[in-house]
């Protein structure tokens, strides 16, 4: 049994975000992190590994420096890693990205008892689209927004979260699951893991590795193969600075209440 976990290295948007004058993100000046939801997918895979002895393979598409992130995830307990990297893949939207990742997962091979796991969404794009689109390209059933996963033989019982509650979904392997932060608390790297991670198998799949897969075609990958294009990107304006009220006492509060009443807001 294999569990293939898709992860992404993202700019840390929780801190200061640098924007270039042309409205694009200044990635070079920002720290990178492993996408938070993806770490929940990694943890879920490691828990299943402890229960079943499954092999955990972590896969990412990105530039060569993403190797560091993949080594860190092997230090957390993943068994091997694959980086999908190549100029031909650059500029891909979610559709093209899922074509490429699906081809890479085909190369690793999805067998009857295998599971593919993803984080719900990445904090740079917030699309939540690549997981379901990989599932479609691989012809696998998907369960997204997983907050609980139980495995019994080849059947997984998953608590799938909705805005107003949840549904319980049963699915047989092979399948794809997208994970949310409520699912678990990701473990840290272990000291032993940090030592071992550099000797664990690490591979790079480039265009030549994947080009024989029918999913890989110049018309379906990269910028040219992406159905969506950016028409314009821009930064929103700052709202005009409002009024700082003087003081923080009873009179201040009465003044504010008076303004709200005068504006018919209360």
């Amino acid at each position: 049994m294999k569990i293939i976990v898709c992860v992404k290295q993202v700019p840390d948007t929780s801190g200061k975000v640098a924007v270039n004058p042309d409205g694009t993100l200044n990635r070079a000046s920002m720290a990178t992190i492993t996408n938070p939801d993806d770490l929940n997918a990694v943890e879920a895979a490691l828990v299943l590994k402890e229960q079943t002895g499954a092999e955990v393979i972590v896969i990412s598409m990105g530039p060569p420096p993403a190797e560091g992130m993949l080594r860190e995830i092997m230090a957390r307990g993943a068994d091997r890693a694959v980086l999908v990297s190549g100029r031909e893949f650059g500029g891909s939207d979610t559709y093209a990205t899922s074509q490429i990742l699906a081809a890479a997962i085909n190369k690793i091979g999805v067998e009857k008892e295998d599971i593919v796991m993803c984080g719900r969404q990445a904090i740079d794009g917030d699309t939540a689209q690549v997981g379901p689109q990989i599932a479609e390209k691989l012809g696998l059933p998907q369960v997204s927004y997983a907050a609980e996963i139980k495995k019994d033989g080849d059947t997984l019982t998953i608590k799938r979260v909705l805005e107003d509650g949840y549904m319980t979904v049963k699915v047989k392997t092979p399948c794809l699951i997208t994970c949310i932060k409520e699912l678990n608390e990701p473990r840290y790297m272990s000291v032993g893991g940090v030592f071992e991670c550099h000797s664990k198998p690490y591979e790079v799949f480039d265009y030549n590795t994947l080009k024989d897969d029918p999913l890989i075609d110049p018309s379906t990958i990269g910028l040219k193969g992406s159905p969506t294009n950016i028409f314009k990107s821009f930064t929103p304006p700052q709202k005009g600075v409002g009024m700082m009220l003087e003081g923080a006492d009873k009179a201040t509060c009465e003044k504010l209440a008076g303004i709200l009443a005068a504006k018919h807001l209360i």
Partner: peptide
């Protein structure tokens, strides 16, 4: 405060009870 229409610089634990009373009074009036 850069996007607030009205800002109060103060301790929320002190300001909020006063704000509640002031709004109650303004509504009653």
């Amino acid at each position: 405060f850069e996007i607030a229409d009205y800002g109060i610089c103060g301790d929320l634990f002190k300001v909020t009870p006063m704000l509640i009373e002031a709004i109650k009074a303004a509504k009653a009036a």
